[in-house]
Computed example of a mutant assay.
Amino acid sequence: MTTTEHRLDGAAVRSKRGMMTALARLLRFPDWFGHNLDALYDCLTDLSWLPAGEHVLVWTHPEVLATADPAGYRGIREVLADAVEGAADSDRPLKVVLVAPEN
Rank of each mutant, 00 (worst) to 15 (best):
P101L: 10
S15Q: 03
E63R: 11
P30N: 09
P93C: 08
T3W: 00
K95N: 06
A12Y: 00
E102H: 12
L94F: 05
L27Q: 10
P70W: 01
F29C: 11
A12P: 00
A24D: 07
T2C: 02
G72R: 02
N36E: 14
L26Q: 12
E54L: 13
T4L: 04
D31N: 09
E102A: 13
A11I: 07
G53M: 09
L98H: 13
M1L: 13
P30V: 03
A39V: 03
N36I: 03
L44R: 04
K95F: 00
L98N: 09
E63H: 13
F29P: 10
E102I: 06
E102R: 13
R14N: 07
G75L: 07
L40D: 03
H35S: 14
M19P: 01
L40E: 06
L94D: 01
T67G: 05
V84D: 01
V64E: 10
L40N: 04
T21L: 14
E102Q: 13
A100S: 14
D69Q: 07
H61P: 02
P51G: 12
T3P: 01
V13R: 03
F33E: 09
M1A: 14
Y41M: 09
Y41P: 01
S48Q: 08
D91G: 09
H6Q: 07
D38H: 11
W32H: 14
G18V: 10
H61Q: 12
W59C: 04
A71C: 00
V99R: 12
K16N: 04
H61V: 02
V84W: 01
V96W: 03
A100F: 07
D69N: 10
L23T: 07
G34W: 01
V64D: 08
L65W: 01
D69P: 08
V58M: 10
D31A: 15
R92P: 06
R25Y: 05
V79I: 15
L47D: 02
L23F: 12
L94C: 09
A81M: 05
G72F: 01
A71K: 11
V64S: 11
L26N: 10
L23H: 06
R7N: 10
L44Q: 10
W59D: 03
S48G: 08
V97A: 07
A71P: 00
L50H: 05
E63N: 12
T3L: 06
V84E: 14
K95S: 13
G72N: 02
P62G: 11
G10T: 08
G53Y: 00
P70M: 06
A52M: 04
V64H: 07
K16R: 15
T60C: 05
P30L: 05
V79M: 06
T3S: 13
Y73F: 15
A71E: 11
N103R: 14
S48R: 14
D31G: 15
T4C: 02
D42T: 11
A52T: 12
G86W: 03
R28P: 00
L37R: 11
L80D: 05
G86L: 04
L27M: 12
L27W: 00
